[in-house]
Design a binder for these strands. Structure first.
Lengths: 236, 236
DNA sequence: ACCATGAATTGGTCAGACCAATTCGAGTGG
DNA sequence: CCACTCGAATTGGTCTGACCAATTCATGGT
């Protein structure tokens, strides 16, 4: 059950010497049968169980933290975010999140979002389609009531990433959204990007529903074109 | 960007904790004008300079190590692998190292590569175009001579990422290529993806040269369609 | 000039202590 | 009986100092 070599893929990035501690910890955690959201054993217990120094434990945890595998909360504990499996390879990306880079990030997002929509249209199942429509209905309802619908818009797009059948799109795009909103949190700017692009969300859904990948691509481009205008407008 | 007054922050605030310590270290390293391959200051020196404990320093280094930003060699030092600034965003990706992971990555790559080619076609300058053509000529020459041209193919595509004017594409796509080749290194498979898609590299260049974004998109799709076939063929 | 050897450098680990935030339960008051 | 408060226990975060292991570099001898 415990993969003897799951850390070896990372040994190109991390030093192979720490592999022992990381491997032992991975084994211990895997043996504990933890699921995402569960709390890892306290650092001091791992020190006892694994007979290694606490700093080593902490460095391994930091490593996983950097990879988004675990999350630590002071006073509470360290929690598992993603299941550790032998087949998972972690690819770190470092991208510039400068404010002037908003348009650059949008271009990347356009490439990804268009592809995700097209894939969703070409392989979306009935169940996933229902979820998308539910999110769309919720978004439209909230939008008509409050005039904007930020979280619901996010939920709608996330359901499309889900429907495309490739988890990488969801991972990449939601990470990009997070960093963008982190940027906004720093510079107290506030724009509801979903406002003007609102009607195209329904047309995008229709394209996905009938399985028309090219139409899904075009509708996604329309949405992002409006986002681009809004960003340029805001930066002026 | 690099704050010119980071030394003042350091001296007036003694509470440089990990999150801040990471920023402070990033600032310090950026201020040192280090380039990839250069050696970072020794941990004990950073302890003095930044007025934080060595364990904190090590945990930050560990973090960057996990993200592939630095590499540590015992007895030698810690070396910078990628340029880092205080505002760099790190996006860890979890990729299935199983066979299906290759196709998943290809889908992501298709989204990015298509957009990069289209952008390159719409805003490529004469200088960048010359570089692309040089790389293409070199690739064709090597291909005709040896039958395959892996590195030259990579160089050709990299020049397109450069020409698109958005550094994010180069970072993302080259990281993905690295991880893919890491996959191949593990599972001793070897395929020259550039072989059958070879002729379409010239047509892609032509599309970029005349500034036809849609044609560039189509030609890129042709190349990636062949890569997809090769992958599926290989996995059989 | 070359090379071997040992000291200095540098990352890796361990141990213990203390701080800070959270959690949890006993005790109190309603 | 429930809800709240407050303090102790828990847990992550940091600092210090020490020692080990690998590398680097200067010193000296040939």
């Amino acid at each position: 059950m415990v993969p003897a070599d799951w850390t070896e893929e990372k040994s190109e990035i991390a030093s192979a010497r720490t592999g022992d501690a990381m491997q032992a910890m991975a084994a211990f955690i895997a043996a504990s049968d933890l699921r995402p959201g569960d709390r890892l054993p306290p650092e001091r217990r791992l020190v006892d169980e694994l007979s290694v120094g606490r700093s080593t434990i902490r460095e391994v945890i930091r490593h996983w933290q950097a990879l988004g595998v675990v999350e630590s909360r002071q006073g509470s504990g360290t929690y598992l975010l993603r299941r550790i499996t032998p087949e998972t390879m972690h690819v770190p990306l470092a991208i510039e999140a400068r404010r002037s880079g908003l348009l650059q990030m949008l271009e990347v997002r356009r490439g990804l979002e268009v592809e995700a929509s097209a894939l969703a249209a070409s392989r979306c199942q009935a169940g996933a389609l229902r979820i998308i429509e539910d999110r769309l209905d919720a978004m439209e309802a909230v939008h008509l009531e409050k005039g904007c619908a930020g979280p619901e818009d996010l939920a709608f797009h996330l359901s499309i990433y889900e429907a495309c059948g490739n988890p990488l799109f969801g991972q990449l795009l939601s990470q990009m959204r997070e960093s963008v909103s982190a940027l906004f949190a720093l510079s107290d700017l506030r724009v509801d990007f979903a406002a003007r692009s609102f009607p195209f969300h329904r047309t995008l859904f229709n394209a996905i529903a009938i399985g028309n990948a090219e139409a899904a691509r075009v509708e996604t481009l329309k949405i992002l074109a409006i986002v681009e205008e809004d960003i340029k407008d805001m930066l002026r």
